[in-house]
């Protein structure tokens, strides 16, 4: 450092926030879910998480090096991409597929656009969807674990609760199980089949609250998202209780909690205005329910968020706040 005084533009004070600190907070918030998944899925959960995180970091470093840019892995964003991708994979997935997904997520979806901040789509979700479309069998082959849960009753099909509902309603026209307190509790703590990180609503909520307290996310997207799903499914359920799942089941199953708290709230790919965030959350909720109810996939969270990612620039454009002092309800500037 030189002895010269530093001169910069104002302000000369700063809140002390940093991208790295935000990323670190998200990682901390993901730890409870990781612990629960290790508890339920054992070694496989650890294997996939490690594979994804290490690959993401390596891919980030290598691709940046290949582009002749600074090594930018110390912002920790690649760790989050890795963890989120792993959390969206079934426990039985071969390691090499996880590696392929990670490389796709980091290289194609992030670094090709210029790295952190420039990617239009959430890399982890895009990686997951790519895997789902490329390897549908592996991506929907659920646990061979015998979970101590009434929801894992069918060891042969070993489907996720949502998958089970889709197939059973399709063939028998009735729901496969009842919704007593025990079932709900099992869903809440995470004793269900599913991708390794999405099973435990309790652990994810804990992490989500941490993020809210640390001001890494605001309430707008998660609340709008979850409320939309609850209202949408509630209407369906009241209309046809035999054909539709109740709202609390929708909220606690599948990737909804993980998506609403950690992936829809990804700063880079979600709107910047508060109103935009609400629109984004509502859109995610509607699309999720559309796909869950009528689509070809049992779960629609990933697709819903990706689709909303795509229209985020348009949402930002449409929800531009009224400049202080500009006429109220006046003409919008183009």
């Amino acid at each position: 450092m030189s002895d010269l005084a530093i001169v910069s533009s104002s302000p000369h004070a700063h809140s002390g926030s940093s991208v790295r600190r935000i990323m670190l907070d998200v990682i901390i918030a993901l730890v409870p879910a990781l612990l629960v998944s290790v508890y339920f899925f054992g070694w496989d959960a650890l294997r996939l998480t490690l594979a994804c995180v290490i690959t993401c970091l390596a891919a980030e470093a290598l691709s940046r090096k290949a582009m002749g840019r600074n090594l930018g892995i110390d912002d920790l964003s690649a760790v989050i991409t890795g963890m989120l991708l792993a959390f969206n994979l079934p426990p039985t997935l071969p390691t090499w597929m996880a590696v392929v997904g990670s490389v796709f997520a980091i290289v194609i979806c992030k670094q090709l656009f210029g790295g952190i901040g420039y990617n239009p789509f959430n890399p982890a979700l895009a990686g997951r969807v790519m895997l789902l479309i490329s390897f549908p069998v592996f991506m929907t082959r659920w646990s061979e674990w015998t979970l101590p849960s009434p929801l894992a009753m069918d060891a042969v099909t070993s489907a996720t609760p949502l998958g089970l509902v889709k197939t059973t309603i399709g063939s028998t026209g009735a729901l496969p199980f009842t919704f007593d307190g025990t079932t709900m509790l099992q869903l809440f703590v995470g004793n269900q089949n599913g991708c390794i990180g999405e099973v435990s609503a309790a652990a994810l909520l804990l992490g989500g609250i941490y993020l809210l307290v640390r001001r890494c996310i605001t309430w707008h997207i998660p609340v709008a998202y979850l409320a939309t799903v609850a209202v949408f499914s509630g209407i369906l359920w009241m209309h046809h209780p035999q054909q539709n799942l109740p709202p609390h089941f929708h909220l606690l199953s599948g990737g909804l909690m993980l998506g609403a708290l950690f992936m829809a709230t990804d700063m880079v790919t979600s709107p910047v205005t508060k109103r935009g965030m609400l629109v984004f959350g509502v859109g995610c909720g509607i699309l999720t329910m559309l796909i869950r109810k009528w689509g070809g996939y049992p779960e629609g969270v990933s697709f819903a968020i990706l689709l909303m990612n795509a229209i985020t620039p348009l949402i930002n454009r449409a929800t531009r706040p009224r400049v202080f002092g500009a006429p109220k309800g006046g003409k919008k500037q183009s």
């Binding site: 194609i108 239009p120 895009a126 969807v129 559309l290 689509g295 070809g296 629609g300 689709l307």
Partner: peptide
């Protein structure tokens, strides 16, 4: 084109609708 590909990927979610 890469972006269009990713957008197309997202639209796969509507399959079977």
């Amino acid at each position: 084109l890469v972006t269009a590909g990713l957008l197309s990927l997202a639209f796969m979610g509507f399959a079977g609708l």
